[in-house]
C-alpha cells in the first residue's frame, strides 16, 4: 500500500532528478520554447520539498495537494499550473485515505490528467506533457514499470510531432524534430514514481 511517506519519497526523488536533468530540460526548451523549463521546475520542486518537510501532510491526497499548490505558486511558467493541477486533482481524487493501492492511484491519476487536458485544452498528439501522461495513466493499471515505459515511449514519440499548443506552437513546422520538454519532464516524474515503487517493494501489491 502507498502511504503519505511513499508519496513524499516519490516527490523527493523526482526533485533530485529534476535537479540532475534541469539543464537538459532547459536545453530541450531552447529551440522550441523559452528556455526556462528546467530552471522553472527546479525552483518549483525545491519549494515543494521544503514545504513537505515543514508541513508533513499525513495522507497521500494531502501530500499531492500541498505539492500541487506549491508548484502553482512557485514555478512561474505554464508547467506550474499544469503540474500543479495534475497533483492537486490527483490528490483530491485520492480523498482522505491514509493508504491507497496502485489501482486507486491509477484512477486518481486519470482524473488529474483529465484536469490537465481541460486546463490547457490539449489532446494527445499535440506535442505536450499529455503525450507522456495519458499513456502512463492507462499503463499504471498494469504496473508501475509499465507506466514508466509508456511515459518514456510517449515522450520519445513527441519528437516528430508538430506542436499545436503553447509557446512551441508559434514556431510551427520548426517544432518538428525536437522532443517536447513537458513530455520529457512528465516521463521523468513517472519514472521517479516507478523507481520509488520498486525500491519500496510496491510493484506487486495491487491490481492483478
Amino acid at each position: 500500500m502507498l502511504d503519505a511517506e511513499f508519496f513524499c519519497r516519490w516527490l523527493t526523488l523526482a526533485a533530485s532528478w529534476v535537479e540532475r536533468d534541469a539543464d537538459r530540460l532547459t536545453a530541450l526548451d531552447s529551440p522550441i520554447g523559452d528556455a526556462d523549463h528546467g530552471s522553472n521546475l527546479l525552483r518549483g520542486f525545491r519549494a515543494v520539498i521544503a514545504t513537505l518537510d515543514e508541513q508533513h501532510p499525513d495522507t497521500p491526497g494531502a501530500v499531492l495537494a500541498v505539492a500541487g499548490r506549491r508548484l502553482v505558486s512557485t514555478v512561474g511558467g505554464a508547467s506550474g499550473p499544469l503540474y500543479g493541477t495534475l497533483l492537486r486533482r490527483t490528490g483530491k481524487a485520492l480523498g482522505d485515505a491514509v493508504e491507497v493501492d496502485r489501482d486507486e492511484l491509477a484512477e486518481a491519476l486519470r482524473t488529474g490528467v483529465d484536469a490537465v487536458a481541460g486546463l490547457g485544452g490539449a489532446t494527445p498528439g499535440d506535442k505536450t506533457m499529455l503525450d507522456a501522461l495519458v499513456p502512463a495513466a492507462t499503463a499504471l493499471r498494469t504496473s508501475f514499470a509499465a507506466a514508466r515505459e509508456a511515459a518514456e515511449q510517449g515522450a520519445l514519440a513527441t519528437t516528430p510531432m508538430l506542436a499545436r499548443k503553447g509557446r512551441a506552437s508559434y514556431v510551427g513546422e520548426r517544432s518538428i524534430g525536437h522532443q517536447d520538454p513537458g513530455a520529457t519532464s512528465s516521463a521523468l516524474l513517472v519514472a521517479a514514481l516507478a523507481e520509488t515503487a520498486g525500491a519500496s517493494g510496491e510493484e506487486d501489491t495491487s491490481g492483478e
Binding site: 499548490r69 502553482v72 512561474g76 511558467g77 505554464a78 508547467s79 506550474g80 499550473p81 499544469l82 500543479g84 493541477t85 492537486r88 484536469a115 486546463l119 490547457g120 503553447g166 509557446r167
Partner: peptide, 14 residues
C-alpha cells in the same frame, strides 16, 4: 498568454 492564462484558470478552478 500561456502561463498567465493557465495560472489564472488554475487558481479560479481551485
Amino acid at each position: 498568454l500561456g502561463s498567465a492564462v493557465l495560472t489564472v484558470k488554475a487558481l479560479i478552478a481551485e
